[in-house]
């Protein structure tokens, strides 16, 4: 089953970390990526640029509105994501717990809706 792991982070907390901590975290993500790949469950994953660069698009009353930046009221932003092939939810949770982001943010684990499961 494919699971998506959303990495929710409080961006305002990030720059305050000491410079070496950033490096440590980066290396930890590198090791995590390798572990996912060696376990044969890695499908995709990326780090996202800061949420200040985000753009919100929606259509209401036939009018398209385009807004800059994230929703102001949400403190935590999505900093990156992984898509993994996991046996079940428990296995996906175990991998989410190993994600370095789990130590200072929240990892949201969602089962991906497979087209085949709709057909059935």
């Amino acid at each position: 089953m494919r699971y998506m792991l959303f990495i929710h982070l409080d961006e305002s907390q990030m720059p305050k970390s000491p410079a070496d901590k950033g490096y440590e975290m980066l290396a930890a993500y590198g090791a995590y990526n390798e572990a996912l790949k060696k376990a044969g469950i890695y499908l995709a994953g990326d780090r996202l640029t800061p949420s200040a660069t985000t753009t919100q698009v929606r259509i209401a009353d036939g009018k398209t509105s385009v807004l800059d930046g994230p929703y102001a009221e949400t403190r935590e932003q999505i900093g990156g994501y992984y898509i993994i092939e996991a046996e079940d939810l428990d296995s996906a949770i175990a991998w989410a717990a190993r994600c370095p982001g789990a130590n200072h943010g929240t990892i949201e684990v969602r089962l991906i809706w497979e087209a085949t499961s709709v057909a059935q």
């Binding site: 930890a28 590198g30 090791a31 995590y32 990526n33 572990a35 996912l36 370095p100």
Partner: peptide, 19 residues
């Protein structure tokens, strides 16, 4: 081998030690 151990660890203090 350290890379695998770091990637599988959930505790940041042990991760840092291994690094």
């Amino acid at each position: 081998a350290y890379g695998m151990a770091i990637g599988l660890e959930t505790d940041p203090a042990i991760r840092k030690f291994l690094q």
